[in-house]
Each structure stands twice: as structure tokens, then as C-alpha cells.
Design a protein around this nucleic acid. Structure first.
Lengths: 154, 154
DNA sequence: ACTGAAAGATAGTAGGC
DNA sequence: GCCTACTATCTTTCAGT
């Protein structure tokens, strides 16, 4: 944490990462600052990259992503080029929401959203498994989400 | 996917899940509808729960979450009460961003954000490991994020 | 459903403390 | 760095098609 942000900035970040539809007026009331001050802070937090983006979180089942999988991928070669090439190709698939390189027995964790098991199967056979240098893919499927937050502890 | 949404609604969802700072005016231009129509659609998509919330996505390293872990948890008892109790308690920890019940050898996947390995260790010893009925916890740490999206394929 | 236009609210700017 | 006040822009409502 770079300490060029103060308590007011932190307050703004805490609130906006849970609800970015709050107006500057509402923030100014909650944080006891003027609207102009809040406006200036929020602008700076965006410019300096503390706030990367504002997004709408959708109900995944309502938009057809009924099946979410975590697939752990092991490659047969760990040269930088091989890892980069895998990342470059796998991140192109819209089903792949996340691609994380990890410690442990596998190289990557992928979060994959599809409509059902058939379409996961199709994704696996026609997209994921066609990528070069894959040794093993082990997949787990989400049964339920007791918590699903994008907010970091602040 | 319930089919009470049309191509315009889908267009709105596609755009807003990547950038919710788009104004109705900008959406109306991109989707060739009037501002009032877009306004009405967005309002309905929120009311019907397609859009669950609008959030700011922060730069995790800038706000001190330098270490992200996925911890797989196995419980020693799979009665509904035990599972519910675990979920109820573990989701209270602010470090736990996600708690997903999963298929496979483990019961839960937790996404845990801390500032460094020391503070992960403290979290593990003073919070996670104090919960009852845990048999095994296996943790993997994020090395890099080639893709990290909240947007579902639409 | 969609539109255009009015009314109300918010974002963004400027000047001063 | 913070404020008040002003202007520009956007949201929200509504009568009309």
C-alpha cells in the first residue's frame, strides 16, 4: 500500500468497491467533506489507478452462465515463452473469466463460465484441449456461492 | 437464461459489465435507441436483478492486497448444518472474498486476500484454522493474473 | 415500446480561503 | 487541501405516437 492516500480516500474506496452507484453527494455526506472535495478525490483515485474500472455485476444464472468451473492446468514445459503463449491464447476465450498463474502442483487456475455441462464439454474439447503443451487439466465445478465479492479488505 | 430480455437489453448488459461508467447517452448512441428507452431498460434490468450491483474494481496491490490465495478446505462432516455453519463463519472474515462450495476432493474453495505471507499466516492461525470441523486446508498462491474479469460471456 | 422535451439532480469547473 | 458557487451534463419523468 503506497501511503499517498489518506483516510478520506480510503473511505471513498471502501464505499465504492461495494457500491459505485453512490453519488458524490452521498459520499460527501458519509465522509463529511464537500462535494467538490469528493469529486477531486475520486478523480485522482481513478487517474492514479487505485480505481481500475467501474463495472456492473450481473446475476450469472439470469444471463445463462449456469456452470462455473475452476480448471487447474499443468503444462509440459515451463519456459517463459510456453507460459506466455498459453496465457495469450487461453485469455482469448470469452468463457475464461480468469487466468491465474499459481504456486503448487499446477501452473494455472482458470475460471470458466458456460451454460451447462454440455457446453463446458464443447469448450474443453474444441478450445482448451486444443492448446499446445498441456499435460493435465483437472476441473472442479461450483456448487454454490456463499460469498462472491470483488471488494478487497480495507 | 430467461428469455424475457431482447437484443437491446443484452447489448446494455454486455457494455455495462465491462464499463458501468457509460452514460445512458453513450449507450443510446451505441445501441441506436433514445436516451429514455435506455433509461427504462437499465432501470428494469436492475429491478429484475440482471444487474446485481455496480462496483468499483480496485488495483489490489495499490490497496495492499499483495497476496491472494486459493485455499481448498475439506471438512470432516458433511451434514447440512456443518456446511452451513462453516459458510456462515468463514464469510464473516473480510480476507475471504469468495467462498464457493465445489465438486471434487475438497468441499470449499476460498479466495483470500492479505498483504503478505506473514499476514496470511496470521489469518490462517487466528481465523481460518480456529473454525470447527476442518480436516484439511490446501493453499495455492496467485503468482500473476493474465486475465481477471468479472464479465460473463454474453 | 419508443420518442422528444421539460424538470430535477449530479458532475465538473473556477476562484477564494 | 478544502470550500462555495456556478455551469455543463446527465438522469428522470411524462405526454404523445
Amino acid at each position: 500500500m503506497q501511503n499517498n492516500i489518506d483516510q478520506t480516500d480510503l473511505g471513498i474506496l471502501k464505499l465504492l468497491q461495494h457500491d459505485a452507484s453512490l453519488t458524490n453527494k452521498e459520499l460527501s455526506y458519509k465522509l463529511n467533506k464537500s462535494i467538490a472535495t469528493i469529486h477531486e478525490r475520486v478523480k485522482r483515485l481513478k487517474e492514479q489507478g487505485y480505481i481500475k474500472k467501474i463495472v456492473a455485476i450481473l446475476d450469472r444464472k439470469k444471463v445463462g452462465s449456469n456452470l462455473v468451473a475452476f480448471s487447474q492446468v499443468l503444462l509440459n514445459d515451463h519456459a517463459a515463452d510456453t507460459l506466455n503463449e498459453f496465457e495469450k491464447e487461453v485469455t482469448k476465450f470469452p468463457e475464461v473469466m480468469e487466468c491465474l498463474q499459481m504456486t503448487g502442483a499446477y501452473d494455472f487456475f482458470l475460471r470458466i463460465a458456460t451454460s451447462d455441462m454440455d457446453s463446458y464439454h464443447t469448450f474443453y474439447r474444441t478450445k482448451l484441449a486444443t492448446l499446445p503443451n498441456i499435460t493435465t487439466v483437472q476441473s472442479f465445478f461450483v456448487l454454490s456461492e456463499a460469498k462472491s465479492d470483488t471488494a478487497y479488505p480495507l
